[in-house]
């Protein structure tokens, strides 16, 4: 099925717990896909739909961006691992001059476009693998909940180190997944965010938003 139609058919409009001013199309308990098993997913040949859920790290980061709009207003924002697009939407709502939402999954790019429209903001998406790119022409990098895999985290952190040296401001959100040790991060904001893909928000987990320190102080 065509991506756009698939997403519309398999998601519902939901309001993320921490960001009631944003609406997102997500896979909720009301969607048949919610109860799909591994076999069902294999039959659908659907790549892991990270875009169908609003992860704790991304949600906390979006809250921070909305509460500190001056941090992105008028600036050029790159969103790494956009997923459902919550951080890209938050940056656009906060007045970013332009937002590029990057996710290598084409479904995520489509979901981000759908969710941008749903929130009446405009942004650009790309499915290019941007890890290692100098991100010329950007001022701010947002990365929500992208540090769950130690080897991917290590790769991204060496890239972020270079970007920080080039003067980019980097913000990330993480619900204590344990892969941030040794990185030059400073805590900006701590909150209880809905536990992983727990749509009714009945279970919360401590989630932190960090800024990358340019002077290299380690966490």
């Amino acid at each position: 099925m065509e991506r756009h139609a698939f997403i519309l058919a398999n998601t519902r409009v939901a309001v993320p717990l921490l960001c009631p001013e944003i609406r997102l199309r997500l896979i909720t308990p009301a969607c048949p896909l919610w109860s799909a098993t591994e076999q069902d997913l294999a039959q659908l040949s659907l790549a892991d739909p990270y875009w169908g859920f609003c992860w704790a790290g991304g949600q906390a980061l979006a809250r921070h961006v909305l509460d500190h709009a001056a941090g992105v207003a008028g600036r050029r924002v790159f969103v790494f691992g956009a997923g459902c697009g919550i951080d890209a939407v938050a940056a656009a709502k906060a007045g970013a001059q332009r937002v590029l939402a990057c996710d290598i999954d084409p479904m995520a790019a489509t979901a981000t476009q759908i969710n941008a429209l749903l929130n009446s903001v405009s942004l650009v998406t790309t499915t290019a693998d941007m890890i290692g790119s100098p991100l010329t022409g950007f001022d701010v990098v947002l990365a929500g909940d992208m540090f769950f895999d130690p080897s991917l985290a290590a790769q991204v952190f060496s890239w972020f180190g270079r970007l920080a040296r080039d003067g980019l401001e980097i913000l990330l959100g993480d619900p204590g997944r344990g892969n941030l040790g040794g990185q030059p991060l400073v805590k900006l904001f701590c909150c209880m965010a809905p536990a992983d893909v727990d749509m009714d928000g009945s279970r919360l987990q401590e989630t932190t938003v960090y800024a990358w320190q340019r002077d290299g102080r380690k966490l």
Binding site: W34, T37, D48, G52, F53, R177, D198
Partner: peptide
């Protein structure tokens, strides 16, 4: 049986 939210959660578990 694991269903989608469990499967996706598992992707980010240590």
């Amino acid at each position: 049986y694991a269903s989608l939210p469990g499967i996706m959660k598992a992707k980010k578990k240590p």
